[in-house]
Design a protein around this nucleic acid. Structure first.
Lengths: 142, 142
DNA sequence: GTTCCTGCAAAGAGTTTGCACGAAA
DNA sequence: TTTCGTGCAAACTCTTTGCAGGAAC
């Protein structure tokens, strides 16, 4: 399975091409879990891509405005994390010890949200759910 | 129903008494929904309580370490919010328009968490859930 | 040729820290 | 008397902004 090229993704999102935008999209596509802006900047530096940090912020803003990424808040590390939007949105188990993020495959919120919309006079359009605890590796080592 | 005095709450949490700590606890106890550090500072100023902002940060740290408050992240406003811990933890419907936070009375996560602990090798100890959308007032006005 | 993206440096917001003084126990 | 909380100012981190040059279309 070959994924859409970053160049095409930019076109589809009606964003101008630039080397910097392509590189950041490439990096985000490789990630299996969300990363911080700091980690993103680190990867950029490791690969000698030479992208200014303020440019990274501006590009992430553009990606967010064009609905290409999700920026959420990771409580245990107290930092923002970024991920490309997936066809089906994801939730994570977050280990309070090693800070690892483990995706949950199915979003368990559908029924709950239906119920809330019925009971409360509120139109739901999104939600955030994170679950904290300890992963099997960290439980073993204690 | 009279709530425990802030002075007693401090004793129970094994924190030294101070005028500043008592005042902040008093303010937090009055709130029906979480508030930002900025809003807390505003209330302090309105009441001429004269508490330095760095002291507010230090006191909130102490409260958090002693498990007296919850500090979460409010996505629509992109800011931290603080609330006293309740006997039963709460989740909120957050209006993307007026930013109002509406508490949900019952946490709907129990069964979901049980299922996750069974399926995945992960010990759950906490979770965060926020639901975003539009409240009835804001729907009316559009 | 026009638009808009980028690098750089500087500014800004929010938060933390060192230190001396003062209050609580 | 000892411990520790507080105010103040300065430092620090993360993020945003203005501007001039350069790349995309």
């Amino acid at each position: 399975m070959k994924s859409t090229s970053s160049r095409t993704l930019l076109e589809q999102s009606k964003l101008k091409y630039s080397r910097q935008r392509e590189s950041l999209l490439d990096i985000l596509k490789e990630q299996s879990v969300p990363i911080t802006i700091d980690q993103l900047d680190e990867i950029v530096k490791q690969r000698n891509l030479s992208i200014n940090l303020s440019t990274i912020y501006r590009i992430l803003d553009a990606f967010q405005k064009h609905d290409m990424i999700e920026k959420t808040f990771n409580v245990p590390t107290q930092s923002y994390v970024i991920e490309l939007k997936h066809a089906h949105h994801r939730h994570y188990l977050i280990c309070l010890d090693c800070k690892k993020m483990i995706p949950i495959n199915h979003c368990p919120m559908h029924e709950i949200i239906e119920q809330i919309e019925k009971e409360q006079d509120f139109h739901v359009s999104a939600h955030q759910l994170d679950i904290y605890g300890y992963c099997s590796d960290c439980i073993k080592n204690h």
